[in-house]
Simulated assay, not measured.
Amino acid sequence: MEFFWELAADWTVNFRQGLFRYLLATVSTGVLLGWLFRRWAAPRRIQERRAGWRDIRRELSFSMLTLAVFATTGVITLILADWGLVKLYHRWDSYPLWWHLASLPVVILLHDAYFYWTHRAMHHPKLFRHFHRVHHLSRTPTPWTAYSFSIGEAALMALFSPLIMMLLPLHVLVWLVFLFVMIFRNAMLHAGYEFHPRGWVDGPLDFMTTTTHHDLHHQQFRGNYGFYFTWWDRWMGTEFNNYKEEFRRAAGAGTPVAGAKQGDASAMT
């Protein structure tokens, strides 16, 4: 019985930590755009339509479900750690300095690839309804959309954590930083306002996705599957042809995006 109480305690800790990160990212993004910098943000709205309170309540409800799935995965990861299968470590002298510096970019690159291919797979007609439909109920996303998943999608997204920790040795602080990067990036991509300067898509950092990049995905469902980077979409022909045009519109004059033109439709599955 004591074992199950310990599992319940670990689950509660994992849930609270996940909830803290989620609320920190979503609330701070909402406060910045809706209050502190609302005059700057107003002309940068990507869609004319606004999400209603019913949409936000739904997103919050499913996000709590997602956090429960994440907490369960966290408990499973702790069990795997007890079995010696997880390579998470605490001492900085366990690995050389170059690995401490390189491990975070490596995890982000691997997560981007994992996200692209699982995300694209969930858009397959036989999988979409069971995995990804809930997330796309948010046609006009908000920061709260970040974790609005079905149980199946939440489990698939959570699976990356134990897999990567079994594959790579990672310092606990590096992993914690990754978790914060992931949720803040997620909230930003669903914010509904374009954060980046107008020249972003014509500069050297064009390989990084923008809010417009992901917002177009929510409008059209297929295409623009990437999370951190645009590489996979461009390599696989799944980026919208008029993405840069729509980005400039959102980041410049602020004309609402009416729609998006897809690239090769045969590739967008």
Score class of each variant (00 low, 15 high):
residue 1 M to F: 15
residue 2 E to M: 11
residue 3 F to W: 15
residue 11 W to D: 03
residue 17 Q to Y: 04
residue 22 Y to G: 00
residue 22 Y to P: 00
residue 25 A to V: 12
residue 27 V to T: 10
residue 39 R to E: 06
residue 41 A to W: 08
residue 42 A to H: 12
residue 45 R to D: 01
residue 46 I to N: 02
residue 54 R to Y: 10
residue 57 R to N: 07
residue 58 R to M: 12
residue 60 L to C: 14
residue 63 S to C: 08
residue 69 V to W: 06
residue 71 A to W: 02
residue 73 T to H: 06
residue 74 G to H: 05
residue 77 T to I: 02
residue 83 W to Q: 03
residue 83 W to G: 01
residue 97 L to V: 06
residue 99 W to P: 02
residue 104 L to K: 00
residue 105 P to D: 11
residue 105 P to W: 03
residue 107 V to M: 14
residue 109 L to G: 04
residue 109 L to I: 09
residue 109 L to F: 06
residue 111 H to Y: 14
residue 116 Y to D: 00
residue 119 H to L: 00
residue 120 R to E: 08
residue 124 H to I: 08
residue 125 P to Q: 05
residue 127 L to R: 03
residue 127 L to F: 14
residue 130 H to N: 07
residue 137 L to C: 02
residue 138 S to K: 03
residue 139 R to C: 07
residue 139 R to T: 14
residue 141 P to G: 12
residue 145 T to G: 06
residue 148 S to F: 07
residue 148 S to W: 02
residue 155 A to Y: 08
residue 158 A to P: 01
residue 164 I to S: 02
residue 167 L to S: 05
residue 167 L to P: 00
residue 168 L to H: 08
residue 174 V to Q: 03
residue 174 V to R: 00
residue 174 V to F: 01
residue 179 L to V: 02
residue 182 M to G: 01
residue 186 N to W: 02
residue 187 A to E: 08
residue 198 R to V: 13
residue 201 V to W: 01
residue 209 T to R: 02
residue 212 T to S: 12
residue 213 H to C: 01
residue 214 H to N: 14
residue 219 Q to D: 05
residue 219 Q to G: 13
residue 222 R to K: 13
residue 223 G to D: 04
residue 223 G to P: 05
residue 225 Y to H: 10
residue 226 G to P: 01
residue 227 F to K: 04
residue 227 F to T: 00
residue 228 Y to H: 11
residue 231 W to N: 10
residue 231 W to M: 10
residue 233 D to I: 07
residue 234 R to M: 10
residue 239 E to A: 14
residue 241 N to C: 11
residue 242 N to C: 09
residue 242 N to W: 07
residue 248 R to T: 05
residue 248 R to G: 10
residue 250 A to Q: 11
residue 250 A to P: 04
residue 251 A to Y: 03
residue 251 A to E: 12
residue 254 G to D: 06
residue 254 G to I: 03
residue 254 G to Y: 04
residue 256 P to H: 07
residue 257 V to L: 09
residue 264 D to K: 09
residue 265 A to S: 14
residue 266 S to L: 04
residue 267 A to E: 11
residue 267 A to Y: 08
residue 268 M to Q: 06
